[in-house]
Design a protein around this nucleic acid. Structure first.
Length: 224
DNA sequence: GCATTAACACGTA
DNA sequence: TACGTGTTAATGC
């Protein structure tokens, strides 16, 4: 169970803060334990907080009117999201579900905007993050319809390992094959098959609980 | 063909 | 014991 200080220290943007800014963040941030399958935030509700994954794994998705889920991306430990809805000051266009028991941090909108207005380094961090997300979205659009299941698994893992968005993770990520399946919309067995194929191509190594990336670039451009 | 569910054995925390 | 993994067989689109 992480403390407030550990939660803040694990976030890269926190290192841009002045002592005074750090104090305000510590005072106003809140932590919540979300059980596996629990809701982190709901589609349609007003965006009141910036949301960080202190520990765990969540997926960000929408549900179509027919009930079909569409996953945008997974967010592992160390990731922060929801800045788009905060900047627009509108309702969230997506929901977030915990894929495993997770510790989630909520930073109030007022503090987020205050940091954005007063700290250029924080603003720069946000720009880099937004730009990186845009790149991810483009990659999804470009590949989604062209790739088979193996390619989608490769893309999903490559985005989870994005060193700019999620610096803490390193080359190894603790994620079960079932969790990957939930992210990309495939069965565990099919994910297992895709992982073995990618392992044969020497792009990654499967471990007992998780995967180690050997070649992020090749993984990102894998087309099957 | 391709993916899914169900079922089983195996290894590890 | 509980969980994740590797594998196979039957079923559906």
């Amino acid at each position: 169970m992480p403390t407030l200080q550990q939660a803040i220290a694990s976030s890269r943007w926190a290192q841009t803060l002045t002592p005074a800014e750090q104090r305000r963040v510590e005072n106003e941030i809140s932590l919540r334990s979300v059980p596996k399958g629990g809701s982190v935030c709901r589609e349609g509700e007003p965006a009141t907080h910036w949301i960080g994954v202190v520990d765990g794994l969540i997926k960000v998705a929408t549900v179509s009117p027919e009930g079909k889920p569409a996953t945008f991306s997974g967010v592992p430990t160390g990731g922060w999201f929801g800045e788009g809805s905060l900047l627009r000051d509108g309702p969230r266009h997506y929901e977030a579900i915990a894929l495993r028991a997770s510790e989630i941090a909520y930073l109030p909108r007022a503090v987020f905007l205050w940091l954005l207005d007063n700290n250029p380094r924080f603003a720069r961090f946000l720009l880099v993050q937004l730009n990186e997300r845009l790149g991810q979205a483009m990659a999804i659009i470009e590949h989604q319809r062209l790739l088979g299941s193996d390619g989608r698994v490769a893309q999903c893992l490559a985005s989870l390992f994005n060193p700019i968005l999620y610096p803490g993770s390193g080359a190894n990520l603790e994620i079960s094959q079932e969790e990957i399946g939930l992210l990309v919309g495939l069965s565990r067995q099919r994910v297992n098959q895709a992982l073995r194929l990618l392992q044969n191509h020497k792009l990654l190594r499967t471990e007992n609980l998780g995967v180690t990336i050997l070649d992020l670039e090749q993984l990102r451009s894998f087309e099957g």
